[in-house]
Every structure is written in C-alpha cells, then in structure tokens.
Amino acid sequence: MHPWGKWGRSFIEYGTAAARAALADAGIGWADVRSVVGAGTIRCGYPGHVAGAAFAQALGWQGTRVTSVYAACASGAQAIDTARAQILSGIAEVVLVVGADSAPKGFFAPAGGDRPDDPDWLRFRLLGATNPAYFALYARRRMALHGDTPDDFARVKVKNAAAGALNPYARYRTAVSAGQVAASPVVADPLRLLDVCATSDGGAALVLSSMEYARRHGAGDPVRIRAVSTVTPVYPRTEPGLPDIATDSAVAAGPPAPGFRESIARAAYEEAALGPEDLSLAEVYDLSTALELQWYEDLGLCPEGEGAGLLRDGATALGGRIPVNASGGLASFGEAVPAQAIAQVCELTWQLRGTAGERQVTGARAGMTANQGLFGHGSAVVAVS
C-alpha cells in the first residue's frame, strides 16, 4: 500500500508505489507480470479512466495486457474479480491489481455532468441528499427500529480509531474518545464530523496468481481468494424504459428479501462454501459509524437489530470474537475510492499471514470484505489461509 493522506500528488504515483511494494512482497519482477488490471478513478481525468494502461506505462512498457475497471466504490473488488477470471481462464498466470486515487476535499461532486437516469444523481439533485445526509437517514432508521443511540455510533469510531492508531498506512493514527466524537460538529443529524469518513489520497495493490505459479515461486501455502461477490440490487423495475415507481398500489411492490448488502454477503458465502460462523475477521465499509452496525447484521455476524449489542459486548474490537475493521476502517483511512476494496484485501492478507503486528487477530483463518457504492455497485471478497 501507499499510505493514505492528503498528499496532493498524482494517483499514478501512489499506485505505482503500491505496485512495486506488492511485487517485492511477491518476490517477482515487473517483467514477470503478464496482465495489469487497474481500478479506475473518474475524478483523475483521462489517465484515471485508463488506469490499467496508466500504471503499466509508469512501471515501464513491457508488453503486458491491460484492463481498466470502474465500479465506484467496488472498483477494486471488480478489478480483483477480473484478474481472477483471467487466471482461472488461463489467459495469465500472474496478474497485478492496482487502485489509487487523488480525491478532492469534501463531498464527492458527481462526475460526468447531469445523469437523470442515475438514482444517485436523482438523490443528490432532487432530494439534496448528499452522502452524509443519506448516512444520517440510515442512522435515524436504526435509532427508530432498534434503539441505537449516538453513543453507540461513537463507540464504532472509538473502536476503529484505536485500531487505526496501530496501522502505519492509516491517515488518522490517533485514538479518540466518545467525548471527542460528541464534541465534534454536527454534519447531518444525528451524525457528527467524527462519525463520517473523510476523502483521501492513497493506493493499494495485489499480486494474484494461480496456485501452481505461487508454489513454483516458493510461496508455500499462500492466502487464497475463495469468493468475490459483485451482485447488484433487485428492485421492482426489471426492464429498461419502465417507470421506476408503480402508481397503482395494487401492483406496487417493495424490494424483495434479502436486502442489497445482505445479498452481497450471501453470494460470497455461497461461493466460498463458508458461513459467518467461519470468519475470523471482517473489513467493512464504514462510510459512517451507523453503517458499520448495519454491516454486522447484513454479514450475519448477529441477528437483525443486534449490531449495537455486538459492539457493546466488545465482540467486534481487537481481541473480540469477530474483529471488524482491524485495519482502522475508513474511519482511519478515508475514501480513496479505487484503492479501498483492494486495501481491505491487503489487510485480510496480512492478518491471515499473521504479520499484522499489534493489530493481529489471533489465529485468523478466514476473512471477508464488504462495501457498497454508487449506481448499485457492491462487493464482498472472502480470503482464507
């Protein structure tokens, strides 16, 4: 990884630094890579749209095939999925996956002009519901349905900041107290500044290969990707051109169960042939503190409505039964969109290798990542040792 922060430099610099570190970690040279998959960043101009080629050029043209993938916050996971497909199909034995971003300050402005067919654009423009407002609606829903409190949300930040203080790649490496969270400015009631993640610069990279290639190069028993889920939501409208909302109450229908985040996790569990009881840890998308609590339930770590209780019991903290965001999460990193799903897998890899230092989860054997993003993008990755 390249450390997260606000460095003000090109995303290519962060990505190539992470790529070189990943190659060194794998014990191979750049010339050994036969495919590069770059996670795209639409805020960084043309080079961001063609991220795979941008990273290949920066590392030095050597004939490798390139692919560029954009899927909002799931870009990194879709890049991993693309690399895995290339390996499983025999196109390449070893693939470099890279994501990096140079993010603007504040709320991400929609890129590409007006998009009236984009439900998130409609949310921004018609409702004025930027992401912090959207997170706040989730928080209010949890308070109304499950009795969660602002103190519960603050506990998430305190937990993740304590883990992030131990992570050399994190942007924010200072522990915080519940009092500091409560004293921070209100952003979108009930969420305060320290409840909401920042935007950041940063980069992350992985070297993926076939098992045969890894063993030929002395990897022994490497960390394995057991599943990648990139499912989309299911809503009543199933064909383009039909109205989004049925006006006749006799035919209107609500979203079917399971919900979007739950379906992301379910597809990953099914592919991996594992369940939540098999996980040693999870890295989830804590865009806000309240959303982390929702992930506990959607990943099946506890029944619906019991996420805050799981947190209060200390189960999701370092040393707990199922640590969540042992890396420090977005609370400690901020969003560097194309890099973050890759960074989550970096953390799983270090944990499953037993090399995570002071934040090591004892006996880690299996982990899951999870995130969601604009335009129905989401992902989950399951890795095992």
Rank of each mutant, 00 (worst) to 15 (best):
G113P: 00
Y172R: 10
A109F: 06
A343E: 07
R215S: 09
T238A: 15
Y296G: 06
Y172D: 03
V97T: 05
G220M: 10
A22T: 05
D298R: 09
R173K: 15
G27Q: 12
A139P: 03
I42W: 06
L194A: 02
Q351A: 14
A268G: 08
A74T: 05
V345C: 10
A163H: 14
G218C: 09
V186M: 14
V95Q: 09
D148A: 00
R20E: 14
R65F: 02
S332V: 03
D101A: 14
T16R: 11
T232M: 15
H377I: 06
W7L: 12
L301T: 04
R84A: 03
F11N: 06
I225W: 02
Q86S: 13
Q360M: 06
T232W: 03
A79L: 05
P323A: 15
G357F: 02
A77V: 02
V234M: 13
A56S: 14
A109I: 10
S229C: 13
H146N: 08
L281H: 08
P104L: 08
P110W: 04
A56K: 03
A252T: 13
I322K: 15
A364D: 11
V207I: 15
G8I: 08
G5K: 09
A182D: 01
A77K: 09
L352S: 14
R171T: 08
V345L: 11
F260C: 13
I28C: 15
P303Q: 08
I322S: 11
G218W: 01
V345E: 03
C346M: 06
R115H: 13
G5Y: 03
A227C: 14
A364L: 09
K105P: 04
Q372L: 10
F107Q: 13
A71R: 04
R84I: 03
E347P: 12
A136K: 06
L206E: 09
G15S: 10
L206C: 09
R155H: 07
